[in-house]
């Protein structure tokens, strides 16, 4: 069994992952929205009927975040017990 210091480290690392995800999310959202969206509306191309900036920023950006969250949770998040007397997760 791991000791408490390890759990603390795990918790800290996961919080940092949260900050990293939000930064990625923001940059993706901002760059596509204002990078592509600042052109004249006449120059927009359309994907699934939506203006390209909107599709990439809001629709694709959302899907990318969902995939990132799934990957991060499945591969980087560790299941640790919360109670001091608890061993493993469920007995």
């Amino acid at each position: 069994m791991r000791d408490k210091k390890d759990w603390n480290k795990i918790a800290n690392r996961e919080a940092i992952i949260g900050i990293a995800l939000v930064l990625i999310n923001f940059v993706w959202w901002y760059v596509f929205a204002y990078g592509l969206g600042s052109r004249e509306p006449e120059e927009y191309t359309y994907i699934l009927g939506l203006p390209d900036w909107f599709f990439y920023s809001c629709v694709l950006g959302f899907i990318v975040m969902v995939i990132l969250v799934i990957v991060v949770v499945k591969f980087f998040f560790v299941e640790i017990p919360f109670e001091e007397d608890e061993e493993g997760e469920e007995k």
Binding site: N8, I10, A11, N12, E14, A15, G18, I19, F82
Partner: peptide, 9 residues
């Protein structure tokens, strides 16, 4: 993620 496991513990 931010409050996360630390908050739970």
């Amino acid at each position: 993620m931010i409050l996360g496991k630390k908050f739970a513990i």
